[in-house]
């Protein structure tokens, strides 16, 4: 994801702003990291350049 996505995304649960923590960057693109809700503190992972903003109870991390 590009950093300017931060301007428009929000927590899927309470719609508050998110904080960004970058683990890996490549050429302006954020490849991995974490998003944290400034209100409810829920965290959302960024993996392979794609933020996962599913509500946590919908995450099905077991491979299909």
């Amino acid at each position: 994801m590009k950093e300017d996505l931060m301007e428009i995304i929000c927590c899927p649960l309470d719609k508050h702003d998110l904080d960004l923590e970058v683990t890996e960057r490549d050429d302006g693109e954020i490849l991995s990291g974490q998003l944290t809700c400034t209100e409810c503190s829920e965290t959302f992972p960024i993996e392979d350049g794609i933020p996962n903003l599913l509500p946590p109870d919908m995450r099905d991390e077991a491979p299909a």
């Binding site: 996505l5 428009i8 995304i9 929000c10 794609i50 933020p51």
Partner: peptide, 10 residues
Amino acid sequence: LRGDFDALPF
């Protein structure tokens, strides 16, 4: 981005 139709992260 990954998300669900019922909880839009925008």
